[in-house]
Design a protein around this nucleic acid. Structure first.
Length: 175
DNA sequence: CATATGATGGACT
DNA sequence: GTCCATCATATGG
């Protein structure tokens, strides 16, 4: 039985959490049913420091990013939902975006931030909730090869590689 | 209420 | 690789 990640796991720098999250198992419980998926792609986001993050402008987002580690942040853009986990210590405005998952016990596309939220039935009502019974992450001893690169689809980015994904995973978004 | 915006996805060349 | 349909959100009046 794999252990569930505790809040202190998320209380690290967003970049660290983003790396560590790769290969771990995301669990979504809904009406007694359980969907599991391996995290294969993430991105680190910072608040005011990050030109890509809308937290600098959006008060609600910023507020959520500054709240406690392990808080779920859901943001809607285009016709999709994007899910993040708040990281760092309180007041730090950091988060990790989950970009892609590898479905384990179900069969829906998760190769993209919008798709995975659809597959797992995640929407705005998860916003500002905390990792818990309905949504949580299991540790995974499996070793993965991590590739880092610049983030995707963003207007202005920091000159840092903040996107992390598992080498050779066919489930990451293609861009 | 009206308007601007975009952390996308998918189809197509 | 490029192009575009689409729509929930934020913000201002």
């Amino acid at each position: 039985m794999l252990s569930s990640l505790k809040q202190d796991f998320f209380a690290q720098d967003a970049e660290i959490v983003a790396r560590e999250l790769l290969g771990k198992i995301l669990v979504r419980k809904e009406n007694g049913k359980e969907k599991r998926a391996k995290i294969v792609e993430t991105e680190a986001y910072y608040g005011p420091e990050d030109p890509a993050s809308r937290a600098c402008k959006n008060g609600d987002l910023k507020n959520t990013m500054e709240s406690n580690a392990g808080t779920i942040l859901v943001y809607g853009v285009h016709n999709n939902w994007l899910i993040n986990f708040v990281t760092g210590t309180k007041g730090k405005a950091e988060a990790v975006l989950i970009r892609a998952l590898e479905p384990l016990n179900f069969n829906e596309k998760c190769s993209g931030p919008g798709l995975l939220t659809k597959a797992l039935n995640i929407n705005k009502n998860f916003h500002n909730k905390t990792i818990g019974n309905e949504l949580y992450i299991l540790d995974n001893p499996e070793k993965v090869e991590i590739i880092e690169s610049f983030r995707i689809g963003i207007k202005k980015d920091l000159p840092k590689k903040l996107r992390f994904y598992i080498k050779d995973s066919k489930f990451v978004s293609r861009r």
